[in-house]
């Protein structure tokens, strides 16, 4: 587990480092993506520090993360593409809805020690919907550059794959956590694969964006 975490943190750190080095060449939405990656990186470190300082667990971190990530995700998606007015309104409505649910959940429903929180599920739901809307809009107006050279495609793929697996993983986790330790390990492994996929996709997106392959 420790090795997996180191590999994941290295990929996350590398993606962040690449984003910071090429920050000036990135377009606005991808600068926000670097901020998001940086935020996740810091969250992971805080998480580890809390655990190493013998806190009972680091679960409270995820309550606050989810709310901030919902905000960053909507900013990135609204900036990355010219959505149709209907899609734009839908994206804003979904994000506001998920944001309010996450806040209400943290304040009134689940206590800070609950994991996985419904706030994370809300963020996952928002990300999946936004990714699907973006896929749909991309198909409506295809760009001239090849799909695999479009940063938007990689950003969207990473988001879609990770949050879908994450969303389903956490549903299973909620279902099996109390019953079977091995299931927890397996779901953690699934989550690790998801993390590797998302940051590989984000790294590719940043690489293509700084190269000038703008959608």
């Amino acid at each position: 587990m420790q090795t997996q975490f180191i590999i994941y943190l290295s990929l996350l750190g590398l993606t962040l480092l690449f984003g910071l080095v090429t920050l000036k060449r990135l377009t606005s939405p991808f600068r926000f993506l670097v901020l998001l990656i940086g935020y996740v990186f810091v969250t992971e470190l805080v998480d580890r520090i809390m655990v190493s300082l013998s806190w009972e667990n680091s679960f409270p971190v995820y309550h606050f993360s989810a709310i901030f990530l919902i905000l960053l995700t909507v900013v990135i998606y609204l900036k990355v593409m010219d959505f149709s007015p209907v899609s734009r309104r839908f994206i804003i409505a979904i994000s506001i809805g998920c944001g309010i649910l996450a806040i209400l959940n943290t304040l009134f429903h689940q206590n800070l020690d609950a994991f996985p929180t419904f706030s994370i599920a809300a963020h996952g739901f928002q990300s999946i919907v936004l990714a699907l809307i973006t896929f749909n809009e991309m198909i409506k107006a295809p760009a001239r550059i090849p799909l695999l050279k479009q940063p938007l495609f990689w950003l969207n793929c990473g988001t879609f794959i990770f949050y879908s697996s994450n969303f389903i993983g956490f549903i299973l986790y909620n279902e099996y956590y109390k019953l079977e330790g091995i299931t927890f390990t397996w779901i953690s492994y699934l989550n690790w694969i998801g993390n590797m996929v998302i940051y590989t996709c984000y790294l590719t997106a940043l690489y293509l964006n700084q190269k000038g392959s703008h959608e």
Binding site: M138, L147, I168, E180, I182, W186, I187
Partner: peptide, 29 residues
């Protein structure tokens, strides 16, 4: 049985996602 169900279900989900992405690429092209 629960574990096998979980693995099977997740594999189906992952395969569905992969199929979705491949289908998207084909349609997009």
């Amino acid at each position: 049985v629960d574990l096998i169900m979980a693995i099977a279900f997740s594999t189906i989900v992952m395969a569905t996602m992969a199929t979705f992405i491949i289908y998207f690429i084909i349609i997009y092209r």
